[in-house]
Design a protein around this nucleic acid. Structure first.
Lengths: 341, 341
DNA sequence: GATTTTTTGATTTACGTACATCAAATTTGG
DNA sequence: CCAAATTTGATGTACGTAAATCAAAAAATC
């Protein structure tokens, strides 16, 4: 049987109360005594029974998710996953709340964080807007002991405990290689559809994409980025326009949302030529397009995994425990029509 | 606050002891009374606090992993992940034991299972040898109440509660499409290297592979399968031989283990022609080969995820709880040199 | 050496559930 | 209606930890 507080008290020759004081870093213990207890803990290999401790404390983990108020499939999916997590709350002792903030608005995010830092949440997960002022508050809160993880989009150079999202640079590079290899020896132009270059994940995907394209597929020229604002209508217009303007386009990389518009544009135009298309995020629309060969590959991040991972990490940090790194790495899913879930 | 047994006793107008009898299906409760209690449970939305219950019972989850005694990187990795899980045992209340059985030996597996069914394990995870006699014992044990999950390789048509492994048919199909698309308009022959056609996962991969090849890439002809027994030496010999024999080979699909030998053969021979190569399982060797372009893509199953998933599922089944299906789906990882972890 | 302060011990209650015991109430059988 | 069997209640202990109280002992201060 694993040792309990009683065993430690006995081994250290002190009372249970003293052991408790040491374990929960309460004052009123001489450092010699504390030493004795800590030695006993180490020697017996004591590990506190978290379940029992949480029971005794009546502990719950109050967590806050801060999300941008964006109206696209991915964010809806993310929201749905958080609601699922809320359903599981009783069993997991979590108490999850979500806060919506205007998208791409550092000031709004900062004020929400300021507000939270006056409260009691034991953990914060946020889709970060990548701005210095956001980083400043986040870092201050980390130093003040708040567990903070970024979700989907990271905060450059910040102290946040963890990033629950994919490596977007790698995603862009992967897209480039897939596109390049699928096209083989063909030469031509590549259209890139993004949401906005103000978001870090989109910038990074583009950066990864262009670098591999330049290094390894010199026959393919990247056209100026189309910024579709993650809006299907805008995306449709931009892509349709680009396709009609340039006959040299052989491939498309859609690195943001709003793929509904992209797909419509592709279906209108493409009877006369074959395009190779790579898009991000698996939704009902992209899935259908993958199956009917309008899209050739989909890169995806699993929102469910991201949410569950964020929760696990925040709980672990709140308890001062280690996380299983490999488990928390969010993988880039590559879907062809053959390995759809 | 969530309701406790006390609240239920009060609501149902019975004593705590009676509630306990109902909850733990102990005898000595009239059906009318049982009804009252069950109604109260439903109406208050009571859910038993598993942590408290486990504490009171002093419960641990004795789990057994049955693994084939195969000497390849993948099995070594799987073993390592199980050892990691054993390290985490105290915190997870698990008590994990592994048993090695000769590979591809149904009789041995059956006798181990028979032995276990006389004991007390609350859950069994096994790399199944796909044979009718194995399925028979497994099904009997499932009916007797043992939670059983198959790991990596499934048991055809069995009642096992869960399969913690990838969809190998989908893996083969994916490999075919990748190879076909990477080769583009090129015509030629494809060499397939397998471990053994006696293992279900290899058979399925091959089946998926050939079907997509036949349907969609008629210009590519699949050569007779090379059975390398997952042994680097044998694999080396077979591949070197095939390459020297046929000048028409343009691609290779390695769906088993023993890739060390394959890679050596490729490096020896391939200076004079470009081959497109897809292999399974990310190891130090395949990773290096991917980076130096000897291999073009690696399909992988994450052994760590498989082990952790098997444990979560077995625990849930032992408690009669639901699992989060999406979380337990083992994904097929596709690695290009750009998205290596 | 007496006094104050700090440190330690002893003990209790609580968390939510499991499980056992014994007495009391109720039902059933004859 | 009585005896036997069944059902229910009341109560206590346990699991491992947290947290509080109050008394006792030890150390520090003057």
């Amino acid at each position: 049987m694993r040792p309990t507080v009683h065993d430690i008290a006995a081994a250290a020759g002190v009372s249970l109360a003293t052991v408790d004081r040491v374990l929960n870093q309460r004052p009123g213990v001489r450092s010699v005594t504390r030493e004795k207890v800590e030695t006993a803990i180490r020697e017996l290999g004591y590990i506190r029974d978290l379940a029992a401790a949480n029971l005794a404390k009546g502990r719950t983990y109050p967590l806050v998710f801060i999300l941008p108020a964006s109206d696209n499939s991915f964010m809806h999916g993310l929201n749905a996953e958080i609601r699922q997590a809320i359903v599981r709350s009783p069993a997991e002792r979590t108490d999850i709340r979500t806060i919506e903030v205007p998208a791409f608005d550092p000031a709004a995010l900062v004020s929400v964080l300021e507000e939270l830092s006056r409260g009691k949440p034991c953990g914060i997960a946020m889709v970060a807007t990548d701005a210095p002022e956001v980083r400043a508050v986040a870092d201050r809160m980390v130093r003040d002991g708040f567990p903070i993880v970024t979700l989907v989009s990271d905060l450059t150079g910040s102290l946040r405990h963890h990033y629950a999202g994919v490596d977007n640079m790698a995603a862009g590079r992967t897209a480039a290689r897939l596109l390049g290899r699928f096209l083989g020896p063909r030469k031509g132009e590549i259209a890139v559809l993004a949401g906005s270059m103000l978001v870090r994940d989109h910038r990074e995907r583009l950066e990864g994409f262009t670098s591999v394209m330049a290094e390894e597929f010199p026959g393919l020229a990247i056209l100026p980025v189309l910024e579709g604002r993650d809006d299907p209508e805008v995306a449709h217009m931009l892509v349709a326009d680009a396709l009609s303007r340039s006959a040299g386009i052989v491939g498309v990389y859609s690195l943001g949302a709003g793929n509904r518009g992209l797909i419509r544009a592709l279906k209108d135009k493409v009877v006369d030529r074959t395009l190779t298309v790579i898009a991000h995020e698996l939704t009902v629309h992209t899935r259908a397009a993958l199956i009917d060969h309008t899209i050739d590959a989909i890169l995806n991040q699993d929102a469910g995994h991201e949410v569950r991972s964020a929760i696990r990490v925040l709980k672990a940090k709140a308890d001062g425990l280690a996380v299983i790194e490999a488990q928390e790495r969010i993988r880039l899913d590559i879907f062809l029509k053959d390995n759809l879930p």
